[in-house]
Amino acid sequence: MMWIYEKKLQYPVRVSTCNPRLAKYLIEQYGGADGELAAALRYLNQRYTLPSKVIGLLNDIGTEELAHLEMIATMVYKLTKDATPEQLKEAGLEPHYVDHERALFYHNAAGVPFTATYIQAKGDPITDLYEDIAAEEKARATYQWIINMSDDPDLNDGLRFLREREIIHSQRFREAVEILKEERNQKKFF
């Protein structure tokens, strides 16, 4: 397959205050264990060895995670692009600045670099889907904790959108499990 890129964000990203500390929290969803990069790579890799009926779902959700990754990147960029080294220092970002200046990097809020060990592809469909459900719930919880730490209403608006998408993705993975559980030749009742 190939991707079509639409040059706009999935949801408009607005940031009301120059607050590099929020960038430090948000980077958890960029290069953290339960972040959008981990999600996208996990689903887009697992999809090859899942039953045909649910491959399309992982393809679609994995693609959407890339759109979420782009939103997080935009938030982090906006929060840091005009910050002085002094402001970055106050926000606890001086280790980041020393290594990356204002560039984004795939690490978590504590500066731990991204690793493929965050994700799994077990080749067992139920195992993989259960991991995916857990990943969505962990990402949902992470968004809650970032919203709790943030006092930026515009930023929180975008985070609420992303959190809602986690709920929907979890729902769809749960439905995928139901599809794979289904006994053959039985009438469906809803």
Partner: peptide, 27 residues
């Protein structure tokens, strides 16, 4: 629906900081 993040009313469950909304305080 595009702004809320879901087409389906039953799945819409927004989260607000309990520290942001003094009135509710339960997220």
């Amino acid at each position: 629906a595009l702004m809320k993040g879901t087409l389906w009313k039953v799945f819409y469950d927004p989260y607000y900081s309990p520290y942001e909304t003094k009135t509710k305080g339960d997220g």
